[in-house]
Design a binder for these strands. Structure first.
Lengths: 216, 216
DNA sequence: TCATCAACTGACATGTCTGTCAATTCGAGC
DNA sequence: GCTCGAATTGACAGACATGTCAGTTGATGA
């Protein structure tokens, strides 16, 4: 096997020597993904058929199955790609954060920033009107349990009232993030990016260090 | 038309003189609704067929359509009933509250209480795994915009920092309520009812009067 | 006992989505 | 120009959900 053997990566390497056939195949595949993204965002998973996607991409119905086992496979690829990107974005934010307050704000900014630049994907992942609801939880669950862990340690050291349960608060954060981001991505004129970030940050910080916080 | 003509009400009047046929009809209808609730809660709207519901209720497929125009009609009836009940419960809580803090806690208690006693309905209305997602928003939207209005007036009188945007906060509350309640209703051993209520209350109060609150 | 009628039955016609496959197109190499 | 094979085509068969309807059941009351 050569070092430069062809990859399964969804993104074809443009610098590699490719045949016209390979290029055509990659183009068709990309078109199908793009059409899937557009249609799923607009109509939701179960109101879009594989034939719809093929037609929107300008290829025959059978071609769809030349590239994807079934509709679920294409959907999975779209959402996995989105979630990977989002996860990376959040992890980068987590690493760059120094103190806790700053970290919270940076993660909120990463989430909101991602939402602003990937509105179709957010619509697919989080919107009430579409159906990726089973998928969404993983990233957020991670974020929330991280937040819950921090919160737990704050309780243990006594700097947080026990009335706020870490698990419940974690779920509350997940719900809040998903909803706010979906709402905002639907129409980003509804609020400025900064206000959204700031509100999410404040809620999380106030929930964490209530009452006896330094005023900002 | 007689004063006592038969009604379209889903709940038959037991004190009225009824024929055996009418009683049978009401029973069948109730069975279908009950089966729908069970199956929708377990499998979600679009993985349950009208024939499934009929079979679960122990009647023939055609009987379903003797009682409901179609699957959507039965689903609507289930969710409407649930939402009406929930709304009433929340409104009762809103009326009984005297001061703002108390009102917040009472509405949270009403929501959580409803969730504990109607776990199937909550699962249908709010769970990620089912599909009533379009329906859920109305009640919560109302709750949230009420909360947002109060919050706006607090901003206007200067007792709340402007960083927290009322609209965004309203969406955050909706998301938080829906998620927490769905999570808790799935397994009520996850946290005590009191802890859930208290956490929701704290988050909302802290979000409203941050930093310079009286400590509880 | 019998006629009536609403409730119920379940086979079926209809429409829709899915995934397949034999035939066709088209670029690459000879 | 010709052959090979990968990519594509689109008609089609199978699976399934939906809603209907002619026929059956059983309570009612004459």
């Amino acid at each position: 096997m050569s070092v430069n053997s062809s990859q399964n990566s969804p993104i074809p390497n443009p610098s590699a020597r490719t045949t016209a056939g390979e290029r055509a195949r990659a183009t068709t595949r990309a078109r199908l993904l793009e059409s899937g993204r557009t249609l799923f965002a607009e109509h939701g998973l179960h109101r879009v058929t594989s034939h719809d996607i093929a037609a929107h991409a300008g290829v025959a119905a059978g071609t769809f199955y030349n590239h994807f086992r079934d509709k679920a496979a294409l959907f999975r690829e779209i959402t996995n790609e989105a979630l990977t990107e989002l996860t990376q974005s959040l992890e980068a934010a987590a690493e760059s954060g120094t103190d806790y307050r700053q970290g919270v704000r940076q993660r909120a900014a990463a989430l909101v920033g991602f939402a602003g630049e990937n509105r179709e994907l957010i619509r697919i992942l989080f919107s009430r009107e579409t159906d990726a609801t089973t998928v969404q939880s993983d990233v957020l669950q991670q974020m929330a349990s991280r937040a819950a862990a921090v919160r737990k340690s704050l309780i243990d050291e006594g700097s947080m009232p026990v009335e706020i349960d870490p698990q419940v608060f974690g779920q509350a954060l997940i719900g809040m993030w998903a909803r706010v981001v979906a709402w905002w991505a639907e129409d980003t004129d509804r609020a400025s990016r900064e206000v959204v970030i700031e509100t999410l940050t404040q809620i999380q910080l106030n929930g964490t260090h209530p009452a006896h916080n330094d005023p900002l």
